[in-house]
Computed example of a mutant assay.
Amino acid sequence: MPAIATLTLNPTIDVAYEVDRIVPTHKIRTTHEYYNPGGGGINVARVFVRLGGNARVIYMSGGATGAALDGLIDLHQLVRTRVPIAGPTRIALDALEHESGKEYRFTPAGPTVSEAEWTACLDVIDRTPCDWLVASGSLPPGMPADFYATLARRLAARGIPLVLDTSGEALRAGLAGGRIALAKPSRGELEALVGHKLESVGAVAGAAMGIVQAGQARIVATTLGHEGAVLSHEGGSVYAQALPIEAQSAVGAGDSFVAGMVYALATGAPIEEAFRHGVAAGSAAVLRAGTDLARPADIARLLEQVRITRL
């Protein structure tokens, strides 16, 4: 049974509501409230465990909201290692408006982290055995942009592959250090990295292949939202068209993608087959409103529909 560890430096309590209509000033009554532990690595672990793997979540939390996050993680029966911090854990809000079908998402920057707090994360990881480590999510204020590059060096010395799913300068600096087994940018994150728009699937594949050829990441899986996803590795690039499903929520689709792909890789699947699992898992995540993430039965059903085309 594959075992991974996930690192979430800026976790959240994910709160989701459904409302009939959003209007200013007036008190808006909500229905179908959901409360879940959130943040990239925690979400990946939730799906990975559902698929049958073992996962340990490593995360920073603090304040009264940090205690609440700990409790929510325990409700999901995840094995956890909490790195305490002084600042309060953030709360993210997702609201689905029935009248328009639009989803509104509010995400704070998160607490400022001290050097002693983020170096404690590295020390915890040094003591954590795992087959893969998934570092997913943004860096909170106070952390150096090259944190993920430092993490990659330490993991490489132990022979542990690093999966990186982040954005902005954290992604740029992380890739610059090399030693990334799998990077999963969105199209927007890849465009920000290369500094220009990527208007076609071929342009996305070319930019991602540049990362592979530069030795920064062995595999790059770029998600394109409603257009599908592109996989680039030393064997070339392939494209998976988006599945014809009705999306209820975009929350956790990328994290579910990562969980599905890493689970397949960790159980010995070839890279392109693992990519198909990622696409199926990402698609499964959007089937339900709120923050429930992908379910194995939906992943298995959708996997049969995933087709890839060589570019």
Rank of each mutant, 00 (worst) to 15 (best):
S186H: 06
S186M: 05
S186D: 10
S186Y: 03
S186W: 03
R187M: 06
E189I: 11
L190P: 01
L190K: 01
E191T: 13
E191H: 11
E191V: 12
A192Q: 15
A192H: 15
A192Y: 01
L193I: 08
L193M: 10
V194L: 12
V194T: 11
V194H: 10
V194P: 09
G195D: 14
G195C: 14
E199T: 12
S200M: 10
V201F: 02
V201K: 11
G202S: 12
G202T: 09
V204Q: 03
V204N: 02
V204G: 04
A205N: 07
A205H: 06
A205G: 12
G206W: 01
G206N: 10
A207Q: 04
A207P: 06
A208K: 09
A208Q: 10
A208P: 10
A208V: 10
A208W: 06
G210P: 06
I211E: 09
I211T: 12
I211L: 15
V212Q: 13
V212A: 13
Q213K: 15
Q213A: 15
A214Y: 09
G215F: 10
A217N: 08
I219P: 07
I219N: 06
V220Y: 00
V220S: 03
A221N: 01
T222Q: 05
T222D: 04
T222H: 04
T223A: 11
T223K: 08
E227T: 12
G228R: 09
G228V: 11
G228H: 08
G228S: 11
G228M: 11
A229L: 08
V230S: 05
L231S: 03
S232W: 13
H233W: 14
H233K: 01
H233F: 07
G235D: 14
G235T: 12
G235I: 06
G235S: 14
G235V: 05
G236K: 13
G236Q: 12
V238G: 02
V238Y: 04
Y239K: 09
Y239L: 11
Y239Q: 09
Y239S: 11
Y239G: 10
A240G: 11
A240S: 11
A240K: 07
A240W: 01
Q241I: 05
A242T: 04
L243Q: 02
L243C: 04
L243T: 06
P244R: 04
P244Q: 05
E246L: 09
E246S: 13
E246H: 11
A247H: 04
A247G: 12
Q248A: 15
S249L: 08
A250H: 08
V251K: 07
V251G: 08
A253V: 08
A253M: 06
A253R: 05
G254W: 03
D255E: 07
S256Q: 03
F257I: 02
V258Y: 00
A259Q: 00
G260C: 07
M261C: 06
V262Q: 03
Y263Q: 07
Y263K: 06
Y263E: 03
Y263M: 09
Y263H: 15
Y263F: 15
A264R: 01
L265V: 00
L265S: 00
L265D: 00
L265E: 00
A266W: 00
T267M: 02
T267K: 01
G268H: 05
A269Q: 13
A269Y: 03
P270Y: 01
P270T: 08
I271K: 07
I271C: 05
E272C: 14
E272G: 12
E273I: 14
E273L: 13
E273S: 15
E273M: 13
E273T: 15
F275K: 08
